[in-house]
């Protein structure tokens, strides 16, 4: 790998990391503002104009709080838990194509850290590892509520991971590739896969809510039953990491949904519009990336809308929804996709 590409990739890693943190930080602000609008309140307004400095104030508050290590906890695992959770939250962003190619001085730089041809499988591997942070943290706290919260969170994540994986299989049958970049390129024509896979998208969306432990699936931190769930014993920035990772997860899962089902960085008639406006290839790439983030923000707002609209499920309802509704629907979706593809003669014989 040439040295300039390597440097560019390192720079891109840094930028994406910072952007994920920034988006997650402002998602906390957005969440409070959104809740305030829905509940006819003002929301954060003291720190800076429109309360825009509120995330900074929250961060400082988290850092300044007293560090607590429960005496009977396992110290090493207690600290490892939130670290692992944050690490896995950040790992998926490496395979997401954030934009097309930039051409500088004849060299082509891709706005994707790495295009491995098992991108979707990598994504699932990392998602399945996300459980460990919660489980280890909850167990190491040596607290009944933490353990119950961790067990709830992890069983919920495992249950919904299956339906999520099966909902994507129908998509993969159509794309014929596991590389996220190629899936985006196939949607260049302006038809997003959500048009062909509405049921698959719906299942994926519901599972994304469950995987990120967002309301109405936030049973892991159900205050009325479990005090605080798996992070009951956590304080200071270790608690901050758990809460913050939830927002990063939300950002990343929104980015995945945009990539897989909503055309990624493509937008309708992009080449015609670029030609009409006289945009260069690099200019088009930048516009595409900005629009990609626009779509992602739209999804994040949808996450928030749902959180402040729907009440929490009961735990048995959650499990029966996952296993008795979403799983059969996902399998049916695979069959329907297969039959339609066979009827249209889209299945290649090789």
């Amino acid at each position: 790998m040439p040295i300039d590409i390597l440097l560019f990739k390192l720079l891109l890693c840094g930028i994406i990391f910072v952007v994920s943190l920034a988006v997650a930080a402002y998602a906390t602000w957005g969440e409070r503002k959104f809740a305030a609008v829905l509940q006819d309140r003002v929301g954060p307004s003291r720190a800076g104009p429109f309360g825009l400095l509120q995330p900074v104030a929250d961060g400082v508050k988290m850092f300044m709080k007293e560090e607590m290590l429960p005496t009977k906890s396992n110290k090493f695992l207690f600290i490892l838990g939130p670290c692992l959770f944050m690490l896995t939250a950040c790992m998926v962003s490496t395979v997401i194509p954030w934009g097309g190619d930039l051409t500088i001085d004849g060299a082509v730089y891709s706005l994707q850290i790495t295009d491995i041809n098992i991108g979707i499988l990598y994504m699932f591997g990392v998602v399945s590892l996300g459980i460990y942070g919660i489980m280890i943290g909850g167990w190491a706290s040596n607290n009944k509520y933490s353990l119950l919260g961790a067990l709830r969170a992890s069983s919920q994540m495992i249950s919904y991971e299956i339906a999520m994986g099966l909902s994507i299989i129908a998509l993969v049958m159509m794309t014929g590739t596991l590389s996220l970049r190629e899936i985006v390129l196939q949607q260049d024509a302006g038809v997003s896969y959500v048009v062909y896979q509405p049921l698959g998208f719906l299942i994926f969306l519901i599972c994304a809510f469950a995987e990120t432990n967002r309301a109405p699936f936030d049973l892991a931190e159900c205050e009325t039953e479990l005090v605080g769930g798996y992070h009951t014993e956590y304080s200071s920035m270790k608690l901050g990491l758990f809460l913050f990772a939830e927002y990063i997860n939300m950002f990343i899962s929104s980015a995945i949904m945009v990539t897989l089902y909503f055309g990624g960085y493509n937008f309708p008639f992009q080449h015609e519009i670029a030609e009409a406006l006289g945009l260069s290839a690099n200019g088009l790439t930048i516009v595409q990336t900005l629009l990609f983030f626009g779509k992602v923000v739209g999804f994040i707002l949808f996450f928030m809308w749902v959180r402040w609209t729907l009440p929490r499920f009961r735990y048995d309802q959650l499990m029966s929804l996952g296993w008795k509704v979403l799983l059969p629907l996902a399998i049916a979706n695979i069959f329907i996709t297969g039959i339609v593809m066979w009827a249209l003669g889209l299945i290649a014989n090789n």
């Binding site: 499988l121 990598y122 699932f124 591997g125 399945s128």
Partner: peptide
Amino acid sequence: AVHIIVYAG
């Protein structure tokens, strides 16, 4: 990838 998903995950 499958090794990680199935065994570790």
